[in-house]
Design a protein around this nucleic acid. Structure first.
Lengths: 106, 106
DNA sequence: GCTTGATACCTAGACAGTCTAGGCCCTAGA
DNA sequence: TCTAGGGCCTAGACTGTCTAGGTATCAAGC
C-alpha cells in the first residue's frame, strides 16, 4: 500500500474526527470505513500516530480498562482544523488525477 | 508533491495514452491536463520514465528535428493495457479515501 | 497447566520513490 | 557575448511505508 503515502495522516485524522480510538482499533476502522480496501500494517499506523502526536494534531492517554492497556488518541483543536485542510488537499489532488486519467474505462 | 508517490507512473502512462511525448513536454502536459495542479520537477519525471521503459511499458526513440535532440516516449502494447489497470487501481483507491473523508466540508 | 490465537503496543532497519541541486548541450534574441 | 529557455540527465538527501521482529495480557481448548 505504497499509494497511501502522503495521505495516511489525513486518513487517520479523518477517522479520529468521528471519535477517539486506539491504534489497533484504528486499523480496523480504516479497513471498515474503506469497505475493506485498507489493510494497513501496524508498522505504518503506529509511526503515523506518533508523528501526528509530536506535531500536536492528536493527543493520547492510557486507558487500562479490564487489564488491557490501550493508548487512546483524540484530535486536538489544531487537529480538528487540520482535518478540513487535509480533506481540501485531497479533493484537489484527486480532481487533478481524475482530470488526467479521464472518464472512460476504455 | 509527495502525495503523488505511487501514482506518478499511472499518470505518465495516462498522458502517453493520448499520444507520444518527450520528457520535458510531458511535464507541461501533466500541468495543463491537471489544471495547473501538477508542477512536477524533472527529477521526478525522468526517473519515472526510465523506470517505465525498463519495465517495458513504454519505449523511446530519439528525434533530432531542427538540431533539438528529444527522446520521445510512446506506450507499448503492455503499456496500453497497464493504463486501464492503473486507472482501475486509482478508482478503487480514491473511492476508499473518499469513503473515509466523508462527504461534507464540515 | 500449557499452548494457541487474538488483542495491543512498539521499533530498527530495509526499501523505494520523490525532490534538490547540480551538470551538460543547444538555440534565439538582445 | 550574454542570457533565457528548451531539453536531457543523475547522485545523493530525504522521508514515509513496510518487514519482521519483540513484549505482554487474556480467553479458549486440550
Amino acid at each position: 500500500m505504497d499509494a497511501v503515502r502522503g495521505h495516511l495522516d489525513g486518513l487517520v485524522l479523518a477517522v479520529l474526527a468521528a471519535g477517539p480510538a486506539h491504534g489497533y482499533g484504528l486499523i480496523d476502522l480504516l479497513r471498515e470505513r474503506s469497505g475493506g480496501f485498507f489493510e494497513l500494517p501496524e508498522g505504518s499506523v503506529y509511526p503515523a500516530l506518533h508523528r501526528l502526536e509530536r506535531s500536536g494534531l492528536i493527543e493520547s492517554s492510557w486507558s487500562a480498562e479490564e487489564g488491557r492497556r490501550r493508548r487512546v488518541y483524540a484530535l486536538t483543536a489544531r487537529g480538528r482544523r487540520a482535518v478540513d485542510e487535509r480533506r481540501r488537499e485531497w479533493r484537489s489532488f484527486s480532481a487533478a488525477v481524475n482530470a488526467i486519467f479521464g472518464e472512460g474505462t476504455r
